[in-house]
Nucleic acid binder design. Structure first.
Lengths: 352, 352
DNA sequence: GAAATCTCTGCAATCGATTTCATTAGTTTC
DNA sequence: GAAACTAATGAAATCGATTGCAGAGATTTC
């Protein structure tokens, strides 16, 4: 036992088991190619020495990092946490590590991601950030070997990337129809940030549902938002200032819905008595505020699991078709306490 | 231009600039040791070839991964997201990547963390999970070179690790005193999960504040919790079943406070009219529910930034003292809408 | 003006694994 | 029983950077 106990290498194992390093390597990666006796000796040697393969050396030789990169626009958004959990779980199960990056203040995030690839630190990228500058990333892909990249919960126009997302437009339509079915005909919308693809999709579905019901939306009822609780609160202030107010609101996500509801309660507007609200996402907190938030649930666990699994398949050279994969998961309406049938004082015979 | 455009290596740069690889390496890491003319030629060559150093090769040679590992007990908890953001920011600024792992279903998380070290994938560990099996980790540290590990927002008894945390006990005391100052004398507590260090610290501070005010806490008023909204909701049901109810509650964290409040509203208990509630953490959502939650704010951004900075210092071999670092940040009482002066019908001359 | 010092650069070893190729021994085939 | 396989193993090259050492010039010192 020496004083300076170094971390054991494959050399140490080989020496201990009285075989060559080649045999040790094989015993560990393809055990069936090594005789049973040798394999047993090597297992023992590994146990005794406490050997763990050096990932840097392996990466260098094999040109794979066994790591994926997750690029988020804003880690702080709780929407991502469940997805991240699922990604980490799936990746770990397949022996991969998960590196995370947040959108950088400057617009050099594209360069950073490219460098992660070029420096052989990651094998694939899950991109949740539609606003990233793609020029740097494009150069990584060529027709021979497309870069393992999956865009998740986002869409990048005119760029042929693999995509895993939900049916935003359809889900928004469904959410809006729920309000219509409850008898509402003055329905407003809290939008997401301008320029965001999801904002467009959800506002589009909202508009479509209204149109199909023969309703229209007063321009003043399209309230600006930024997917944050803060912006939902601000929307409530705008709402209060309206001359004629809608009786229902479809918020582009749960956070703006929650902020909106708080903003209204401050002014003694009661939900669902005075207004119905539908959110989008089904954050954990959505079912733990009161009234509990009616919302479109996105299958976040599945999104993360499927995206991570597909990315690793890609990175490990799964047979790739010429077309980029485009996977759409469906959302589910969760009716809770923030939506109610519109009382119609003018007509008799309302709901019991 | 060949068909198979490989990623450029230091060899390519050296060839292009007509120098040796040694000179290229030096030009990039210690520019002052290379003549200006050569440096310029090399910069140009790097630009033209689009060279990025291969991190695997560098890691192998330098035995350094330029990556830190963040081990969380539950990524989904929004408490961590802001901290994670700060960590990522600090790490990125210093050229480090951030790997995240969640607690594993089995109890092999200790082994996984050890393997991350042993396989040379990470240079340091930020440990947020007090429940990890430390046997595997201990063997990494020896007196010559203590493992770069910082326990954050947690404490591991009888283990001499560097620690960055907040003044939980004192903060709990402060929160409780706030309730006492408002005239409450029947005060209950929603506890964290049993066996958790933070649970003990916060319950301890709570008890201390009561004792100092000459108050005592009915055992039935110590409601069990698990730091989740779900458990806060459950606590509300227990609360409703009490024969004699407290007029104020100090919840061990915001999530249980939020769940508790929702649970009460379901039963038409109004806050702060009927009960005052103080939380702990100041999650983003705490100020966006209504009434806005009074809470002890933990400096999460600072926690993350400081812990990450200190860890990287450690990993880069900062002069280490014999004693483990023990850094305690202070929390701040944020008074919002869920706490109010207790009306005292019996005594005249209350607050205006 | 010789010795000492400094600046710049290249050669070659090194990090620790994987993998190609060659070799030996044992087994099957006809 | 010779030819043709098959299985098990080792020697050595390889991945792409960093770095100790040495040497060539240039500059300073006395």
């Amino acid at each position: 036992m020496s004083l300076t106990k170094k971390t054991p290498t494959i050399q140490d194992v080989a020496q201990f088991a009285e075989v060559s390093t080649a045999t040790v390597s094989r015993a560990l990666s393809r055990p069936e190619r090594v005789s049973e006796a040798t394999r047993a000796r090597i297992s023992e040697a590994v146990r005794i020495t406490g050997y763990t393969p050096n990932q840097s050396a392996r990466s260098l030789r094999q040109k794979t990092a066994r790591t994926i990169l997750v690029a988020l626009p804003d880690i702080r958004n709780p929407f991502f946490s469940t997805i991240l959990d699922a990604i980490e779980r799936e990746a770990a199960a397949r022996g991969y590590g998960v590196l995370v990056t947040n959108r950088f203040s400057g617009d050099d995030s594209g360069r950073r991601m490219r460098d992660y690839f070029l420096s052989n630190r990651v094998d694939g990228l899950l991109l949740f950030d539609g606003a990233v500058d793609l020029r740097h990333l494009r150069m990584l892909a060529n027709d021979q070997s497309p870069m393992p990249l999956i865009v998740v919960c986002e869409e990048i126009p005119h760029a042929p990337f693999h995509t895993v997302k939900t049916d935003n437009s359809f889900a928004a339509e469904r959410a809006t129809r729920h309000l219509i079915d409850l008898g509402h005909c003055r329905i407003g919308h809290i939008r997401g940030p301008e320029g965001n693809v999801l904002t467009g999709e959800r506002a589009g579905g909202f508009g479509k549902a209204l149109a199909e019901a023969g309703l229209s939306c007063h321009p003043d009822w399209m309230l600006p938002g930024r997917f944050t609780m803060e912006s939902g609160w601000a929307a409530a202030q705008l709402f209060m200032a309206l001359e004629e107010r809608p009786t229902a609101i479809f918020a582009a996500n749960d956070e703006s819905a929650i902020g909106f509801l708080s903003g209204l309660r401050q002014h003694d507007i009661e939900c669902p008595r005075d207004i119905s609200v539908v959110g989008f996402d089904d954050l954990t907190v959505a079912s733990h505020i009161w009234p509990r938030l009616t919302t479109m649930r996105q299958p976040r666990e599945a999104l993360g699991r499927i995206a991570a699994g597909a990315l690793i398949d890609l990175a490990e050279g799964a047979p790739r078709s010429r077309m980029p994969m485009y996977m759409v998961l469906s959302s589910e309406l969760i009716v809770r306490g923030t939506t109610a049938r519109l009382p119609r004082p003018s007509r008799p015979g309302g709901p019991v």
